[in-house]
Design a protein around this nucleic acid. Structure first.
Lengths: 319, 319
DNA sequence: TTGTAGGCGTTATCAG
DNA sequence: CTGATAACGCCTACAA
């Protein structure tokens, strides 16, 4: 007996049981405005008796407000719990959305974000952009698509500028930099900020990393070879900065006496390194909220807009 | 200018551009059976020109096959990358579904699994059960709901039985057990298996754990107090077993000379403990595939059915 | 092979 | 306050 005849309970079934029209049922379902107490009671009872469950697809199709949003990390899902930055954002967004009764979904695989009603996008490379049919807001500057895609980002370029200017004002003259992935907005923008204050750059002072600890180690070793006279390094992420400090120390350089090291993010690890890391603090506690706010603007059809959150130079001991 | 007039492009728009009916467009979209080459080409071109994107909700509502399934871990999302068992299953399911072009989604929060087309459920307690309007299959025995809910599970009870019988045959007489959470099927069934062979059980030989390393440590300490003469312990999970071994060793007992320890799962850690852990191996490589197969049976309306996968006693050195 | 018509379950807009 | 009635975008018999 395939399909045993147990059709799904619809709103009309409830209506029939309650003795009202399906429109009325729909009303009580969505807030219950403009419904008599009598009707509401009848419907509530029928709802219970029938065990009605709303059909999400039908609801969305008919134009209800999004009630599931996808947390799309373009780089790698498994990073979610490994990368403290992403993890912070994930937790923050979960919270911000839960407050509104909306669930956060983690899509993975190919056409990933098709099963959700809206999308929050992280670590997007240029290629990941492209207009989505869904309301979408990017975390980070959608380089080359500002104006088309809504976004929330920290002031990567300004932050880098602040840090490098600080190193310069501290009397450092050979300031190197370890960049993030240059196909990521944050990567290129932090490098741009470095350039802004350094002016014409010595290519030997620039090495690319990928935000990982290991790449920090490798980059520092390379820098030491290419430019043994360096006296400061601006590292595009705290995690890499830890690697840089370790490599530097291992090579016999004292931080910050011989080489000053500045990071970016203010990740938890920044307080635990030795010496504690001077870094650029992102406004982590504000990002999720802004992201969600922008998302609703999208939903309401207010054209895409970008918000750039200020960062804060946080001086500790490494520089 | 809110909503700048850029309506979403639908199948009918494509049809208009291609000069065919929307039914034809739909056909080429779904496999392209029964469509002339001419029509197909026209449609393909139109598809490209218009940048059409299917509306997932409409598609699902109209009865298309599920194309997003939720991986619902009833216990805790953050466990996904921490718990090696869950992680294995996650990876396996992602793979098994990706092969069919379907995406796995990780729902979190309240009414979690409403945004997906089907559900794979893990670590479900009795309370988490209850008929879902979506095709659903549980991983683990849905105790008290067999016959109502499709499921795939390892033979928990049989496995426990094998292990305890093995301990007994090895000459052990005071066999204790550290159970998993007793509100979880695996927890109660592994305990049941223990009971099956032990017969009438000494309550002092049974301590409950929660599958964590720490709970293994605590449980072992407690057992040592309650039944200092024990000569074997069947632990309901490998992770806990590691804790048990550590606690036992710290207390001066030799494993396996003084106390034999048997685990369950054959988690990666089982090979790395000292001594290597004798355990009950679950058929990890088969579970995801079976789960997906059962899910399709559900989708096709073949009433719920359960499959119990055999486990294998894996003797190493701890018992 | 193609197009027409009806339906999937909701929400939203209207008259009453 | 309530009930028709029309979307929403797509799939699929069924008829041509």
């Amino acid at each position: 007996m395939p399909d045993g005849g147990s059709r799904r309970v619809t709103i009309r079934d409830v209506a029939r049981v309650a003795g009202v029209s399906h429109a009325t049922v729909s009303r009580v379902l969505n807030g219950g405005r403009d419904v008599s107490v009598t009707a509401r009671r009848a419907v509530d009872r029928a709802l219970k008796r029938t065990g009605y469950t709303p059909n999400h697809h039908a609801r969305q199709l008919a134009g209800a407000r999004p009630d599931s949003v996808g947390f799309l990390n373009c780089v790698d899902v498994s990073q979610l719990f490994a990368d403290t930055n992403i993890n912070r954002l994930w937790l923050g967004c979960t919270q911000a959305l839960a407050d509104q009764g909306i669930m956060l979904v983690l899509p993975v695989g190919a056409g990933a974000a098709r099963a959700v009603d809206a999308v929050l996008m992280f670590s997007a490379r240029e290629a990941d952009l492209g207009d989505s049919p869904l309301p979408l807001v990017a975390c980070g500057t959608p380089v080359g698509h500002e104006g088309e895609i809504a976004y929330v980002t920290s002031d990567d370029r300004g932050g880098a500028r602040q840090m490098v200017a600080y190193l310069r004002e501290s009397g450092r003259r050979r300031i190197a930099t370890v960049t993030g992935p240059l196909d990521l907005p944050s990567g290129m923008l932090r490098l741009a900020g470095y350039r802004d204050v350094v002016g014409v750059v010595d290519p030997g002072l620039v090495v690319a990393g990928d935000y990982s600890y290991q790449s920090g180690v490798v980059a520092a070793e390379r820098l030491l070879r290419q430019a043994p006279d360096l006296d400061a390094v601006f590292v595009a992420s705290d995690l890499m900065a830890v690697g840089v400090i370790d490599a530097l120390t291992r090579a016999g350089r004292r931080v910050p006496e011989d080489v000053a090291v500045g990071g970016f993010d203010d990740a938890p690890v920044a307080r635990r390194t030795w010496p504690p890391l001077t870094t650029v603090r992102q406004a982590w506690e504000r990002i999720p909220g802004e992201l969600v706010r922008q998302l609703w603007r999208q939903v309401d059809g207010d054209g895409p807009s970008g918000v750039v959150l200020p960062v804060e130079l946080t001086v500790r001991a490494s520089a």
